[in-house]
Design a protein around this nucleic acid. Structure first.
Lengths: 260, 260
DNA sequence: TCTATCGCGGCAACTAATCGACCACCCGAA
DNA sequence: TTCGGGTGGTCGATTAGTTGCCGCGATAGA
């Protein structure tokens, strides 16, 4: 697993990613390890340069600064957004105000939807968690392009398949695991994605607030704080000024329950 | 909304569906009402008779009796299963033994996966909850067919999109609503799908056990029993020999929280 | 017709998790 | 320098939900 830039790279130059080249990206989710899902496919990876150019000609480019909203839950949408650089957090807000983060998407993936062709209503919101470059592909163009460029259809199908896997895996976690188990799982996953070896253990090299974590596991901030504190008491993790260090991955593994 | 046969139609002739014709089906999920999702698309609906024949030629037919397993979580899979008649329950089993029902799928939809082309591992299981006719379409054939029959690609994309919506909606419910709210939601949804008007209220014309309901909302059977009992005390619902009658949909609506 | 099984219901003890509120701290902006 | 917002930490009260168990009645199968 490769080290990605911190969410807060802007404020933490040590972790800043060097002039990012679009890479078929990761996706950060509260789910089974990437192993069982396979890596996320890149929408345009299978296209020839020429086909890619045809497709991108229909796109509208956007630059999005950290914290800015790409699309809003409830708004009418049109087509999809392809991420070229940066990172997009996709989340749902319940009427009660509670939020659940569906995923953090990285370059090569597309977000928006849930539909790709039709123009329905966004079922969730997307905001940039780091400065991002986005290409919007309108639904109508996309539908025409699919017939013209079959590889694009394959790319879309694979992308949608992957999203289906992600969301169902999320539902599986949420439906069958306790919050504590989910948190243990998430920490291991974060260590895998952003982990940096250290004298004591593995430092999670990305600054997530307790609230961020809470949104990912579907809990309250307080509960995350309490759980982390308990883990700290047991010597499983250590907190150093808002950084989390995993000391005993074996115990975390145990906490998250059996399987995979 | 139209009345469908009971899960237990075999034991309850009154509710049995008359010689079912394949209908572009519903899908039963713990989610927002169908309104916001749009109906589920039928995979072959957009095809000409000829195209349909080309596609189905690659399929292998299966007859599945009630209770029989179509595919098993963890097993290698190949392609998708198209439902012609019957009903398939798709569910995930956690290592702890807890189950969550992802959906009940009706004719016109395809199940299996999560992948359509590749041959990965089933992330969930599928069993028939009523006698069903199934057509299996192998992954390799499917990939070739997509290029030959573009409408099939569109059908697949729309089907996958719908599944993505379903699963994300499920994750949204599970991540942001309490079990009680989810149960209230589910009851209203069931009333909409299977409801039969009655002197007192709406009878849910399909026999779901408490365990079935529990699997749908991601809770234990006991909790469902307790919750239903409390609702009964408040006069919101009534139980008549394992049938549920909705007396006060307005109160249920209130319980499930705001929104939609 | 008998018996095994399943679904329903209830109960008690327990813990996981929420809610709301408050405070201290740090850091960045003015 | 001060101010203010975001973050982490904590507390107490309350509730939601789990676990495990037992018993009854209906049903299906032998």
């Amino acid at each position: 697993m490769q080290l990605l830039a911190s969410v807060k790279s802007a404020t933490n130059p040590v972790l800043a990613r060097p002039a990012a080249t679009p890479q078929a990206g990761h996706s950060l989710l509260l789910t089974e390890s990437a192993r069982s899902l396979g890596g996320p496919p890149s929408l345009l990876a299978a296209l020839t340069d020429r086909e890619r150019e045809i497709v991108l000609r229909h796109g509208r480019r956007k630059v999005l600064y950290r914290g800015k909203t790409l699309f809003n839950q409830g708004a009418k949408h049109d087509g999809i957004y392809l991420i070229e650089t940066g990172r997009i957090r996709v989340f749902y807000t319940a009427p009660s105000g509670r939020e659940i983060t569906l995923a953090y998407w990285h370059p090569g993936n597309f977000v928006g939807g849930p539909e790709v062709f039709g123009s329905g209503v966004h079922q969730w919101s997307g905001v940039a968690t780091s400065n991002s470059n986005i290409v919007q592909l309108p639904g109508k163009d996309l539908r025409a392009l699919v017939v013209e460029v079959p590889s694009l259809a394959i790319g879309l199908i694979e992308g949608l398949t992957f999203k289906g896997k992600c969301y169902s895996a999320l539902a599986q976690m949420l439906g069958t695991r306790s919050i504590t188990e989910r948190l243990a799982h998430l920490l291991l996953h974060l260590a895998q994605l952003y982990g940096v070896a250290d004298a004591d253990g593995v430092v999670i090299g990305a600054a997530f607030t307790h609230a961020d974590l809470a949104h990912m596991v579907g809990a309250t901030r307080q509960w995350v704080t309490i759980s982390l504190k308990r883990m700290q008491e047991k010597g499983i993790v250590a907190s150093r000024r808002s950084q989390i260090v995993i000391l005993r991955p074996d115990l975390l593994q145990e906490m998250r329950g059996l399987g995979d």
